[in-house]
Design a protein around this nucleic acid. Sequence first.
RNA 1: UCCUCCUUAGCUCAGUUGGUUAGAGCACAUGACUGUUAAUCAUGGGGUCUCAGGUUCAAGUCCUGAAGGGGGAGCCA
Length: 476
Amino acid sequence: MQRTKIKEILQSDKCDYQVNVKGWVRSFRNNQFIALNDGSCMGNLQVVIGLDADEQLIKGINNGVSISVDGMVIASQGKGQKVEIKADAVTILGECDPEKFPLQLKNRPSLEYLREIAHLRFRTNTFGAVFRVRHTLAYAIHKFFNDRGFVYLHTPIVTASDAEGAGEMFRVSTLPFDNPPRNEDGTINFKEDFFGRATNLTVSGQLEAELGAMAFSEVYTFGPTFRAENSNTARHLAEFWMIEPEVAFNDIYDNMDLAEDLLKFVISYALEHNREDLDFLATRLADEEKQKPMNERSEMGLIEKLEFVLNNKFERITYTEAIDILLDSTAYKKKKFQYDVKWGIDMQSEHERYLVEKHFKKPVIVTGYPKEIKAFYMRQNDDGKTVAAMDILAPGIGEIVGGSQREERLDKLTQRMEEMHIPTEEMYWYLDTRRFGGVPHAGFGLGFERMVLFVTGMTNIRDVIPFPRTPKNAEF
RNA sequence: UCCUCCUUAGCUCAGUUGGUUAGAGCACAUGACUGUUAAUCAUGGGGUCUCAGGUUCAAGUCCUGAAGGGGGAGCCA
C-alpha cells in the first residue's frame, strides 16, 4: 500500500479509510498511543495499538524508532486530535536504542545542545519548523524572481578575483601543503596549481551577476558564499547563502522598491504556507521572552511583527538624516553610545539598532553613504561625497540587505578603482561591461540566513542553517 | 580577535561560610495500571563534579592555566 503523508491525514476530517503511514516515534504513551511524525508538518499523528499487541513489538517501540503502520483512519475517541489511526499492523523499520539515543525530547534540550547533535535536531518541533520555513522562503525567492521574468544565474563558487574586498577568502588549491612549488623568490608558484593561478571560494556573485544583467536585463543569484573571517557571533557564518539580484536600467530607487517587494513577498508567502510552523515558533519565542527582564522584551509577537512589516512601508532615510537623528537623540545627548557619532563614520551596530528598534521601530532603508566607507563599484552621487548605496536594517538582525546602484561611467569607475588600489587590468572583464553597451544598473545582496532568522524569530544564525560552518566548527 | 559569563548523571539543573556517603526532575530498567496527550504510580541502576596544576587537615566549592560553549563587540550578509 502506498504511503500517505501525515500532513494529508491531519489536514482532512475524512475518516474510515485504510492507509499506510511511516515515520518516527515522538512519544509512546500508555503502551497504546504512538505520536508519529514524518516531518511533513508540525503535528503528530496518533497511532493507536490494541492492548493485545505483541509484547516484543511494544518493547521495541521507543522514542526515535522508525515504523510503518497499516491501519484505519478513524475519528479520535480521545481529546486533543480529530483523527487517529487504529493500527492493524505495525512494523519497526529501524530500531533506536533508548539508552544511547541522545535526543530526549521530554528534557526540553537546549538549542546549544541540539547544535552539538545537529544531525538529529531535525527531529524536534523547533528545528522541524525552522527548516520547513527555510525551505518555503527559498522557494518563495525563486518564485518571486521567476514571476518577474528574472533569469537565475549560477555564478562560480571558485573564483580568481579578490576584487570586492568583501572579506578574507578560503584558498582553493591542489598543491601539496608540505612542499608547494616555489618561484625563484620563494613565493608559491600558483602557475602549477590546478587552475594555473591562485583561486578562492567566492565571497560574492555580484560582479558576475552584473555581467549577466548586461544581457538578460534582470538576473539573480542564489548560492553559497564563503568568508574566512574569524567572526564569532550569532549573526555570522563562514558558509552562508546569499541572494543577489542585479537589474539593468534600475536606479537606486527601483532597487529599494525591488528589495522591499522581495522581503514582503517572501514573508507573506511563508505566513500563507507555513502558518502552523510560524505559530509554533511564535509560541516558542514568547516563552523565551518570558525569561527576559521586562525592558528587554520585544513589544510584538512574531506573527504580529511579520504582519506589521507587511503592512507598513519601510522607512527610507539618507545616511545624513540618520546621523542627524542620532545626534539629536537623547541616547547621544546622555552619552549612551559607546562609539561617537559624526558625519563620515561607519555606523556601529548600537547606532543601527537605535534607528531601527528605538526610533522607527520598523525596517529602515538607509541610502547615500559616504563613499569612503563603501565599495568601489557603487555609483558616485553628484555631491562628490556620497554614493548611491542602500542598506536595509531589520529589527533584531541589523543589516539584512546591502546594495547599490552601480557605477556605470567607465572613467569614474576606473578612477575610483585606482584610488582604492584595485587592479584594473585583471578586472578587464568587469570593465568591459562599461565599455561595450553599459547601462545604469543596480542590485543588492540579501543574506538568506539573516532573513530566516527574521522570519522564524530565532536568534542564533547557527540554528537556521542545517550544518553551520563557523570558526573551529565543521562537524557533520 | 577582544570583553564577559558558564562547564556537576545520557539531558535540564540544584549543591549553603571550603567539612562526613554529591541531590532532584526527565531519560533508562523492572513491576503495576490502561483512552493516553511531556500519561501516571512504585522500586532500582547510573557520577574521573570539563581537563592540568596549585592552596588547604579537608576542594564540586578558593587560585592559576588550558579546552569547549553562551552572551556582547569588531568585520559583514
